[in-house]
Write a protein that binds this DNA or RNA. Structure first.
Lengths: 274, 274
DNA sequence: CAGTGGTCTAGACCACTCG
DNA sequence: GAGTGGTCTAGACCACTGA
């Protein structure tokens, strides 16, 4: 127990325990909370600590975390409490577990997000790989609706990213994403390109942030002339339009993203992963 | 303990315990499974029993289940195991819990499913109520793709339900649903109309089945002439098309449903419930 | 105040994986 | 065989609800 300090994250944890558990709020051994002020349950505190340590790069994607018992000893809680925290992180897609092997950090989701493109009406089809192409990354001022959604002042600086998705060589979707410039200073075309053109991967690697899709809106629209030209189709073609807002794991707005997707020969499928 | 038999579902449970736990597979007290044949974990068996008892109408919507300790005594397992089963049923939307009050049966989802219709770009808008109108219910033969998805033989008997959704009086969506006729013998226009025109509510009340959305496919299409006439719009209008397949809680295909939804002034929103 | 769900602990044993 | 996650039990105490 005396070598706790050698573990990264110990300081944070001991701070939390000191302030929120031992001194002010109660005695973890019995679960007592002597104060009427709320504190986060232990397992929720552990979730935060693990998310932070993952963000700091302590464990890379597909690397194993310490075992439940090891973590319990590090954090000075019972194995059952660690288990509950890990279980919620698995449910959130941050971790995955393999019986007999260990608990691993999940790959960060790509910009594509959940869902896949298959032939309409076919539900068990294995989807083809999407290829991502970064069209551009620029700084600008937040449009009205973007600013409101991201909680920015009107016209505040944002980073705008444009991307094109190809399936078997054909352009199938066009993305237009906005992020608050203040929070992501080094986010530019070069850094995104180093991460395969993928913003979410870049956010994870460079800023330790794991985006999380909060809301999606679906509409059928007629393509704008520019978008139609970019996708190489007639401008009157009915097109699937998706608006997505992503947040941090803690729920702060992170990204506003508009996608148009050609669905004359494809269907955007959500739910069961094949 | 001796009055276990007065509880509905006892027979099933004792059968399960007899066959799967005590005699063949091990000793629940220690969690041992002496046989290499798999058995379901206790908490999963309890989930099945509870789903069945809910389906049989033992507890109606918004009624409280017995307490965790009461259920544990009934089923002869520990409170923690009951808790795990209840927790998963909450996650699946079958139950909800209120601290200090109890565990309650959730309302069965309506045919509309998840998601709501709001003004495009507005994410926190309170959605207006949708009004459902049953257009018709008829028997017929399964179209090729429906039969394949529902696991029926080609041309096997199906029940077809047509519904119209209105928002502030305006027709906004049109549904076309197919269910296997063999499984739902009394399902007709009259019985559906008794349940407000809602198929899922009817399935719950009359057949004890709680549908569960398994997959959704999204496309933008041009409306067919008939659908356009039904919705009162021009036939070339871009329209959101949704294909949905629902299953039972156990995963057997239940329903194939095609929906067209007008999204020129509305957006189909999924994710965060307001 | 009694009853309910929510959290936390401790200990046991199982099934699975890998060297 | 050692180490991992998965299941199950038992017991304690908390926060919340409603009579």
């Amino acid at each position: 127990m005396s070598d706790l300090a050698k573990y990264p994250g110990f300081k944070l944890m001991s701070y939390i325990r000191l302030v929120f558990t031992l001194d002010l709020f109660g005695d973890k051994k019995t679960g007592m909370m002597r104060n009427t002020l709320r504190r986060l349950p232990l397992y929720a505190q552990i979730k935060s600590v693990l998310i932070r340590r993952i963000g700091e790069g302590e464990w890379q994607a597909n690397q194993a975390l310490p075992s439940e018992w090891e973590l319990a000893a590090q954090l000075d809680v019972s194995q059952g409490t660690v288990r509950k925290a890990l279980g919620e992180l698995v449910a959130q897609g941050v971790l995955y577990r393999r019986q007999g092997r260990g608990t691993f950090v999940a790959e960060v989701a790509s910009d594509w997000g959940a869902g896949y493109l298959v032939t309409p009406g076919f539900l068990d089809e294995k989807p083809d790989m999407l290829v991502l192409e970064l069209l551009g990354c620029s700084r600008g001022n937040a449009p009205e609706d973007v600013a409101q959604t991201l909680g920015l002042r009107r016209g505040e600086a944002v980073i705008r990213v444009r991307q094109l998705w190809r399936l078997r060589g054909m352009a199938v979707a066009l993305d237009d994403a906005y992020l608050p410039a203040e929070s992501f200073d080094g986010l530019d075309a070069r850094s995104i390109r180093q991460c395969g053109g993928d913003v979410y991967v870049t956010l994870q690697r460079r800023f330790g942030v794991r985006p999380r899709v909060a809301v999606e809106q679906w509409r059928a629209v007629a393509l704008s002339r520019e978008d139609a030209a970019m996708l190489g189709v007639a401008p009157d073609q009915p097109t699937l339009s998706q608006l997505r807002v992503s947040t941090t794991m803690e729920g702060e707005p992170l990204e506003w993203r508009q996608r148009v997707c050609l669905t004359d020969a494809l269907a955007y499928t959500t739910g069961r992963q094949p």
